[in-house]
Design a protein around this nucleic acid. Structure first.
Lengths: 349, 349
DNA sequence: TCGGCAAGTGCAATCGATTGCACGCTATCG
DNA sequence: CGATAGCGTGCAATCGATTGCACTTGCCGA
């Protein structure tokens, strides 16, 4: 047996196109298009549909989404912008989103921004280049300029979790204020008077809403000796550092209400490093009820926000909008609840 | 001033096309294309480039990736297939992938399969429809038929973490065998003799490699009284159930080596529920060193696999391949290490 | 028997880019 | 001074689908 030089060449392997199917089925490609399109099938005779489907199956035809998108001016994709997929708070939202968009034939394009404005900008423009039909943005910050540009350009965006300053886009979020109230009442109920709020950075709408709610709660409870400490970012490391500076200042609070679970986790680590016990020496309440918060040491008492549901809602909103629904600015606030686990107890003495 | 009925209509808001730019710059669109393409800029005079760039900026031109992809037959996207993004083991891989593909101008398309064959099939075909330039598949199972179809069709795929039966695709994985050896030696060194392996399902190459390595290690240590229990899935819930049946059978082992961290976590929960203490009563070793394994109660001793690096490597491989590199089947095995934390201790007498 | 209608199919334009080829112009060299 | 090389640009085809319109049939009713 003799092989030619070409035996080593890689076959071009062109995927079947609509023309291939048309040729095989001996009909015009327009007919193929219609026969395979659920919404236009009725324009084609059953016999032809059958021929076409047979042919399509035979050559393994799958429409080129790029070509279709070019023509129909819709890519059937939703861009999803996250600050950090590695933060376990977000994946459930992603699931929620996928759970509603996939069944409708949409694919989601995920990008990370690392909370970096420049990265967010390039990420968004990539998505725009790809002609996403809509965007879900969970990385909003207080002073967004990109988003207001997008708004001017008429891009469809739904904000998730975090608001983005003055840009009038719809927003789906958890009830941060109510969550803080729940947490404060819980701690006060246990008898705590000296409470520290380890707040997240001010440029996130979520954490600053929480800080505001904390301040308001303190006003309602004049008996409280409340402190607020801002940490640099929404990470365990920042929480640890923040807790350390507080601890370095002298007598610790009897309870800390963290801006989110990661900060709480950091606080836990700082406590442990100093030989303080939670909840015996100090109680800690988190926020978000991220996955595995129940497995921390001790299991974390925290405010549960319905992340998966938030994802779903955001996805529903963007799809409605794409479908021509005229949702004006609207904010969907989803209820939160307190999950009472083992990181809180009455203060000692 | 008089408004027509159209005043309420939504402006179509057509994005600027290459023709708009051409018109404004008074050149042919071919020239615009070349002027804006880094690799063809040299064919265009500097004066023209300047004119074009000005015009492009003025109208806010961004090339339509769909149109470009259609013409160039490359979408600049990489499909990433995961079993479950909600499992914290995967996000770091995703980061690794993004870290290498984004700088090269690629966007990654993420999809979940939930370990479901049917979902995997539809997910993959969606990605193929979108003409991804390559795929990274982390959801491989032993008996893959979809992947071998893809292989026949000439699709470029790199497997991540899990192998997929006989399909000759390149694979990037951690050294499962070595990891188990490390763990077993660690436990044996502590004095454990009665060791249980809570193995994951057999249809994953990872868990079955681990089970094999465990069996081999036992052969090397005839003094061991080893047991293996298979759990139904790679989840905490399954780990808990598995541990419960073992516990229900009588005297517990002094140490358990879990198929992964989630199973370990489940085992931890089961122990706690029965009033058994870890590591005082039974030691536990996990596998993967997923995020927050250090924050469990107790902090989990586990085998660290370099997830982010695995993602990077897989991404590098797929890009090389796309660039015309002819990587034949090759397996990249990355080294693992034991992270000794607090879930292991010598057996009580 | 003929006009008309409807169903089914084909034709060709179109979406927005890229790219091989041809053309015109200028500069260079023998 | 004329042939020629080469640079810069324009022309038009092309990628693979969708879709408005026109055309062909066959059937029905008057």
């Amino acid at each position: 047996m003799k092989y030619s030089d070409r035996s080593n060449e890689v076959e071009p392997l062109r995927r079947a196109t609509i023309d291939d199917v048309a040729k095989l089925a001996k009909v015009h490609k327009a007919t193929v298009s219609r026969a395979l399109n659920e919404r236009k099938k009725h324009q084609v005779s059953p016999a032809t549909i059958d021929k076409v489907e047979r042919a399509a199956r035979q050559v393994g035809y799958a429409p080129n989404a790029l070509a279709r998108g070019l023509r129909t001016n819709s890519s059937m994709t939703i861009g999803v912008v996250l600050p950090d997929i590695t933060n376990p708070f977000f994946p459930p939202m992603v699931r929620g989103i996928e759970n509603v968009v996939s069944p409708r034939g949409y694919t989601s394009l995920l990008v990370n921004t690392d909370g970096d404005k420049a990265m967010e900008r390039t990420a968004l423009s990539h998505l725009i280049d790809r002609r996403v039909d809509g965007l879900i943005v969970a990385s909003g910050q207080r002073d967004e300029t990109v988003l207001s540009e997008l708004h001017k350009a008429g891009t469809k965006v739904v904000l998730l979790n975090r608001d983005a300053g003055a840009v009038p886009y719809p927003l789906v979020r958890g009830d941060d204020g109510a969550g803080i109230d729940l947490a404060v009442e819980h701690l006060v109920g246990l008898g705590h008077r000296h409470i520290l709020h380890l707040a997240g950075p001010a440029n996130f709408s979520t954490t600053s809403k929480r800080a505001d709610a904390f301040a308001a709660a303190c006003l309602r409870h004049p008996e409280l000796d409340a402190t607020v400490e801002r940490v640099e970012s929404l990470t365990a490391r920042a929480g640890e550092e923040g807790m350390n500076v507080v601890l370095g200042r002298g007598t610790p609070p009897t309870a800390v209400l963290a801006g989110n679970d990661l900060i709480a986790l950091g606080a836990l680590r700082a406590l442990r490093a100093r030989g303080l016990r939670c909840p015996a020496d100090v109680s800690i309440v988190g926020f978000n009820d991220m996955p595995f918060a129940e497995d921390f040491s001790p299991p974390l008492t925290t405010v549960r926000v319905p992340t998966e549901l938030m994802g779903r809602r955001a996805a529903q909103l963007i799809l409605e909008w794409i479908d021509g629904g005229s949702l004006d600015q609207q904010t969907v606030v989803l209820p939160v609840s307190l999950v009472d686990r083992e990181s809180t107890a009455p203060p000692r003495s």
